[in-house]
Amino acid sequence: MAKKSVLFILQHAPLGASLARAGIDTVLAYAAFDQPVSVLFSGAGVLQLAPGADCQRVGRRDLRRMIDSMPLYDIDAVFADAAALSAYGISGNLPPFVEAVESNAIRQLHERSDHILSF
């Protein structure tokens, strides 16, 4: 059976709720099972990419370290909604494998994915 591509839309801030962590855990699990995944950080989810957001200082696992490990899982399609980055004032210092994308590219990402899971 052909593998199905899954797009993960991560739209929650890294702290305040556990959904961000659950999303990243799920992404890494799919990749560990050798599934083709792409990842889109959107809305408040782009805050997961903000430099200096160290969850460990409040006693939670460092999400950014988990995100930074994505290339080790062969996840190379990682995107961030450019409009959300700008709305949240995140301008440089994204992880090098994250590509900022505009709405057209986001629409294409939706269209070429078999499934979309949002966290």
Binding site: M1, H115, L117
Partner: peptide
């Protein structure tokens, strides 16, 4: 169960719906 079961279930599915994300 583990996340592997979610992986298998989405793989088998034509449609996956998320509630509460």
């Amino acid at each position: 169960g583990g996340l592997g079961q979610l992986v298998a279930a989405t793989h088998a599915a034509d449609r996956v719906l998320t509630f509460g994300g």
